[in-house]
Each structure stands twice: as C-alpha cells, then as structure tokens.
Design a protein around this nucleic acid. Structure first.
Lengths: 202, 202
DNA sequence: ACCGTTCAGATACTATCGGTATCTGATTGG
DNA sequence: CCAATCAGATACCGATAGTATCTGAACGGT
C-alpha cells in the first residue's frame, strides 16, 4: 500500500461490506423469512447493489449460512454465560431454563433455522453445512448436560447424548409451534429439562 | 342434466380434477419440498395445465393446505388405529411409540409441514389455517393422553395439555432434525412419551 | 332438437427474483 | 506515472407465481 496510515485497505473495506450485508440480511431474514427476503433488497438496504452480495458470497444460501453463524455465536455465548453464572445444579438448570424461555419467546430465529433447513433437501451444500452445525450444537448441549449431571452424581443415570437430542428437538419443535401460535405454553421446556436432569416428573 | 345416467356431471369431473391435483401435488411436495415444486409441473404431471390449478384452488398456498389436510387425515387414522388395537396401558403406549417411530423415520411430511409453516409469517391465510389445525391436533393428542392416564389412574399427576404440547413439539423437532441428519436417534421420542405417561425417567 | 349461457380448463402475458456475464473506475504494486 | 487488479455496479437470462383473456364442451330452458 502507498501509505501505511491509510484509513482502510481494500481487504478491510471488503470485510466491512461483508459484515454490513450479514447484519442487514440477519435483520431481514429474521423479520420476513428466507424466501420472502430478496437479495436485491438486502443489498440496497445495506447501501450496495446485488453485485456486492455475489462478490462476497457464492449466493443466497451462503449468505444465510453466514447469518446463521452470527446468530449461533450469540446464542452460544448466552448459554455459556447462563451456565457459568451459577455453580450449583438448581441455579444452572434455572439459568438454562430462563435462557431457553427467552429464546423461545422470540422464536424468529427458530423459524428461520427451520425454513432454511427445508432447503437442504435441494442443496447438498446446505445439507452438509447444516448437519455439521447441528451436530456441534448437540455436542455442546450434551457436554453441558454431562457437566451438570456429573457434578450432581447422576451421570450414570442420565444419557447425556439422548438428553441433548431431546432438549434440542423440543426446543426446535416449541419454537416452530410458537412462531405460528403465540399461545403455546413454553414452560414445558423447562419442566422437561428439569425432569431430564433431575429425574422429577415433567 | 340431459341424461340421468350420464357418466359424470361437470361438478363430478371437477372434483376428480381437484383430487388428481392434490394427489400429484402431495407426491411432489413430499418429494421435493414446497418451494421446489412448481405449479406448472404439478399440473402437467396430473395431465392438466396451470389453469386447472387456479380454477380449483386460490393459489399454491391453498393447494398445499389441501395436501396437508389429506396427509393429516391419514396420520390421524393411523394414530386412532394404533390406539384402539390394544386396550391396556403398555400396549397402547407401545403402539403409539411404534407409530411415531414410523412417522419420524420417514420425516418428509414433517419437513413439508415445517417449510410451509414458515410461509405463515407472510400470509395471514396460512397462519390462521395452520394454527387451527395445530390446535386440533394438539387437542386430539391431549385427549388420547387423558384417556390413557385416566384408565391408569394417573390423571391427577399428568397434565394432558402440557404432555400433548411436549409430545407434539418433540415430534416436530425430531422430524426436523431427522430430515437433515438421518443418524438422529428417534428412540428418545418413545422414551419421553413413556416418561410422560408412566413417570419413569426418560 | 335447438341455442344461448356457463364455466372448467387452456393460453398468453406480467412481475419478481436468483443467478450470470460483463463492465468500470478506484486502489494497488512496481 | 502506468498497467493490472478487483470490489462492486449494471445489464441480462431463466424460472415461476399469479392474472387476464379466451375457447369449446356441457348444460338447461324452450
């Protein structure tokens, strides 16, 4: 580069463009859904043209994948925070339940996740990438379950992997139902979680 | 009409056309998904043109609604059959579990249901119609749970509505995950069901 | 038996959107 | 200062949901 103190290099500016597009796309995908959001509108609302999108992503699918990654990052941070705040079993379970309640209360991201998941049937790229991420999430949940149950001396009673599958499925299902019908009672998630981790009846 | 013994009246023939379209659309929606199935292909494969579709349905959404209704009809018949075959608690639970296992093993319909559900955000028609149907399904499940638990003398321990919400959500979530990742273990559904209906740990 | 009406379905057209091909002008390294 | 590069713009294409219009066969009243 000509001047070391230059405000931005070309690569930096492109990275900024990419971030802008992801941010705007995230808002629009979450607000209107994947299919209902056109790349043109995303680009224009971010102050670019469609060319900028195709210059930063292979297409709509990869853009949405980046959006989902950005969402997952936040989501995971939230869970970890909820889990590290308390150290005793009940506190952790309650923190996890509260986090889940919050996430399921505003279930737009579940709806997006699930709408995008439907595309996997047509796109091997989406299929493999989503499976990768779902497995990672499931492992993370299983790890948390293992941590909780081990400390509570229940690790020989609870199968962490099955518990993780149950919790993830229940979360997806509740979020899906709730995105249609706001009257769905979300408390069953926390109840089931407590039952899984503590053995009480849901 | 001119002849009482006429093979078919106009209305009858239209009803046949409608049924043909629903049948073909069902196969294609289940095989390829909602978005990936074009009305033109449906019409041609049924031996008609797109005009026939719009003459029988208000549009793609209503056609898919009719397809879902036809699927639900079959599904409900399956559950009822599974439940009336046996009369004791364990037999019924096992029959229900087996039915769920079968349904979740071929989860194309869950994927369709859920992909179509994403459209509700954009279409008030789809939203209200789907909510209607989901509530009916949830009530039906709750009714079955109530029946089982009452006969087992557990009706004061188990909240049938909450159990129904849990089971429906878990089914949707598992189906969604499974439509992407065939390695997902479906046995957790039956386990959770048994836990809900019998009180044993999942 | 005839005939004007109706209407299921066909045909032709429009608008929108994802994706591709091509272009342009500012940044970059030499 | 200049030629190459490349982020992003522009112009275009193909597919598809939906609309407007048309057609011909079935229908009912006479």
């Amino acid at each position: 580069m000509t001047v070391d103190g230059a405000r931005t290099t070309r690569a930096e500016r492109q990275a900024q463009t990419r971030e802008s597009l992801i941010e705007v796309a995230r808002d629009m995908f979450l607000a209107d859904g994947y299919a209902a959001t056109s790349l043109d509108k995303v680009a224009v609302r971010a102050g670019f043209s469609k060319g900028a999108v195709y210059s930063n992503f292979s297409g709509k699918e990869e853009l949405c994948m980046a959006v989902l990654d950005s969402i997952h990052e936040e989501q995971i941070a939230g869970v970890v925070e909820a889990f590290t705040r308390d150290t005793d079993l009940d506190g952790r379970i309650e923190a996890f339940a509260a986090w889940a309640r919050e996430g399921l209360g505003q279930p737009r991201w579940t709806a997006l996740e699930v709408e995008f998941g439907a595309i996997a049937r047509q796109s091997p790229y989406v299929a493999t990438e989503l499976v990768k991420r779902h497995r990672a999430i499931r492992s993370a949940i299983a790890q948390l379950v293992r941590q909780v149950t081990t400390e509570a001396g229940l690790d020989d009673v609870v199968d962490a992997d099955q518990a993780a599958t149950t919790l993830l499925s229940l979360g997806i299902g509740l979020g899906t139902l709730r995105s249609l019908d706001h009257s769905i009672d979300v408390s069953v998630f926390a109840d089931t979680m407590r039952a899984l981790l503590r053995g009480s009846r849901p």
